[in-house]
Simulated scan of single mutants.
Amino acid sequence: MNADTPLLSKEDLGRLTDFVYRRTGMRFEKKKRYYVERRLAERMAATGSRDFADYQSVLRLDGAEAQRLINSFTVNETYFFREEHQLRCLSRSMLPEIVRTRRPGDLVRIWSMPCSTGEEAYSIALWLLENWAMVDVYHIEIVGSDIDTNAIAAAIEGRYGTRALSKLPPEVVDGYFESEAHGTREIIDDLKESVKFVPCNLADEGAMATMGQFDVIFCRNLLIYFDEESRKLAARHLHRALAPGGYLCLGHTESMNRISDLFELCRFPDAITYRRC
């Protein structure tokens, strides 16, 4: 494949992007042809498919290959303490408001989705351990989920390189990660046990329903890949996944006000969030 010889016809490109859209809610337009074809070429090579028609047959017969194709389209670029202002807001504003009516030992649930390779969810655990004095007073449950099953496997393993750790204070790295081995450092077991990782698809109503309700949901930089219809569907699913009065945190370029009226805008000193109405 090269830039002058498209791997897919216009019709086949539409079929493939529609398949991904139905499974994920992510819409890839024509200008993303190279991105789409590059990932398709990798999967065709891995399955020994001669052409797209051959690969379609594989997809119809092999559910695991359909998941591998979806995995190839996800973006897992992240690092620890990304958008730190939201973590400050979590410990200074959102959680104090949530536990105002809770008793010691009560459950507080926090969901990171998409969690990528674990940095997003582990960041929440690290931040609370270091910055919220009440962390041991309540039963804090942190769940990380992603549609990419490879990312979930990496999160459970919990090994990270220098770039992923670059925003963490040295004392935090030394306190919560094993010594460096082969260019990576592994999260200590106690921290691994504080976060549960499961695959979940925001566009799948049934999968979302199995997760229950949360007090805080971090859903950052995912809706930018959705079209208007998918965003509205995602908003309804996120609304149902929040406990009454729960908070939603989006990426800095995302705004729920342009998507749904199911949430109330909350301007805290550290960050803007959205509360379930």
Rank of each mutant, 00 (worst) to 15 (best):
A203I: 12
K31E: 06
H182M: 00
A241D: 06
I98A: 05
F177I: 05
L40D: 02
N257V: 02
E37Q: 12
L222T: 11
S194T: 15
S93N: 11
L233K: 15
A235G: 11
T210V: 02
K196P: 11
H239S: 06
P6L: 06
I140N: 06
T210D: 03
R33K: 14
F52A: 14
E228A: 12
A181Q: 09
S145L: 15
F197E: 14
E42Y: 11
F52Q: 08
T17S: 02
R27K: 15
V75D: 02
E120G: 01
L191Y: 09
F226T: 10
I147Y: 06
P244T: 01
G245I: 15
T253R: 08
R33D: 10
G183I: 03
G245M: 12
S9E: 03
N201P: 08
H139F: 01
M1V: 03
C266M: 14
E180H: 01
A155S: 14
V58Q: 05
S112E: 11
A271P: 04
D174G: 01
A203W: 13
P199D: 06
R92M: 12
G212I: 07
E171M: 04
V173L: 08
D62M: 10
L87N: 03
A271V: 00
G144F: 13
Y35D: 07
V216F: 08
R267Q: 13
N2G: 09
N131V: 06
M256V: 12
H85I: 01
R276I: 02
D204Y: 10
T78C: 04
C89G: 08
T273L: 03
D204H: 11
N71Y: 07
E254F: 04
N2H: 11
V99W: 00
A53C: 13
K32L: 09
E157V: 12
A241F: 03
E29D: 11
D12W: 15
A181M: 09
I147R: 04
M134H: 13
E119F: 04
V143E: 01
L262W: 14
A133K: 15
R88D: 09
E42V: 10
S145P: 10
A181G: 02
